[in-house]
């Protein structure tokens, strides 16, 4: 049992806004929560490269190709910052990846949907990155120092992602009838999955209370989701597309009321039954397995170099 005095001191630090650093004492549950959340976050960035990489060879202009490459590279970079931050909790990257492959560690379910048209590149940037940013801006103030610092860096870099996605959608929405249709369909596809990104309702989110008390989470799932909805609906209307929710309605307080999410689908995809769950994991495992001999070579060569120095 952890003694109450230590717990109280820990809580006092959090309440005073003092960041927790890797070598500081922390409750086991705090560490476990971070291990789970940060690795999930890192995996999401890395798995998130896949639906976009799917369009890299087909990007329609020099400009679009460069942007998409830079963006995918950013996502991978963010995964890397997060793995490195998560490793300060005493778990190795190798272990995190093993958990991912064994299905013990999750990633954002939103990446288990396919990206059949170029408009999906727009919708992913605009909606998926847009939803992620709302969450990440909030996490810049999270109580674990390495996580907060990684978030600050990530938010700075992510700022162009949502804009590039919206630009693609805006361009297509005013393009040929076929393009507009593709844009609307992509919006329809990604609207609900991006709202699901904020997680279950607060009342059903088992870890939320404690995470908020410990300053790991700063705002509730429903609050963050509402912020995103309120920002996004006017953007949908501005480019002449339709919100794929007949019940979406502007309330007198300036906020939008929307239909409830299909929670069966949400839990189903989390459990691994989404359209691309198995494809995404297989892709990641294959790259990892195919790379094993390269890593072995680099390690062997690295050791020889060190011996030469010694």
């Amino acid at each position: 049992m952890e003694n109450q005095k230590r717990l109280d001191e820990f809580q006092a630090k959090i309440d005073a806004g003092i960041k927790i650093e890797p070598k500081d004492w922390m409750p086991d549950k705090y560490r476990q929560t971070l291990v789970r959340q940060m690795s999930q976050h890192a995996h999401s960035e890395v798995i998130g490269m896949q639906p976009e990489a799917n369009w890299l060879t087909r990007a329609p202009s020099l400009r679009a190709k460069k942007i998409l490459m830079a963006k995918i590279q950013d996502e991978g970079g963010h995964g890397l910052y997060l793995y490195c931050a998560a490793e300060t909790l005493g778990v190795s990257r190798d272990q995190y990846i093993q958990w991912l492959h064994e299905g013990k560690s999750k990633y954002a379910s939103v990446f288990n949907y396919p990206s059949p048209t170029w408009a999906d590149m727009g919708a992913i940037g605009w909606l998926v990155d847009g939803a992620a940013i709302v969450n990440q801006v909030s996490l810049q103030r999270t109580s674990y120092g390495p996580y907060a610092r990684a978030m600050v860096r990530i938010c700075k870099e992510e700022s162009f992602h949502q804009r590039q996605g919206y630009e693609i959608m805006a361009e297509m929405a005013k393009g040929t009838p076929e393009q507009k249709e593709m844009a609307q369909e992509a919006l329809n596809r990604w609207w609900w999955p991006s709202l699901m990104m904020f997680g279950p309702h607060d009342k059903e989110s088992s870890n939320s209370g404690q995470s908020m008390k410990w300053g790991i989470k700063l705002e509730s799932n429903d609050d963050l989701r509402q912020q995103f909805i309120d920002k996004t609906i006017p953007q949908v209307e501005l480019i002449g597309l339709e919100v794929p929710d007949k019940n979406a309605k502007l309330m007198p307080n300036g906020s939008y009321k929307t239909s409830d999410i299909d929670w069966d689908e949400f839990w189903n995809v989390i459990k691994g039954n989404g359209p691309c769950n198995s494809q995404r994991l297989k892709h990641h495992k294959k790259a990892h397995d195919d790379g094993a001999w390269v890593r072995a070579a680099a390690e062997a060569y690295g050791k020889k170099q060190m011996e030469l120095v010694d």
Partner: peptide, 21 residues
């Protein structure tokens, strides 16, 4: 670019995309 997300480890994956860019 086609190799993006298929590298032997994350750092190398990003480095190859950099060269591609």
């Amino acid at each position: 670019g086609e190799y993006s997300s298929k590298g032997p480890f994350l750092e190398e994956d990003l480095a190859i995309t950099n060269v591609g860019l």
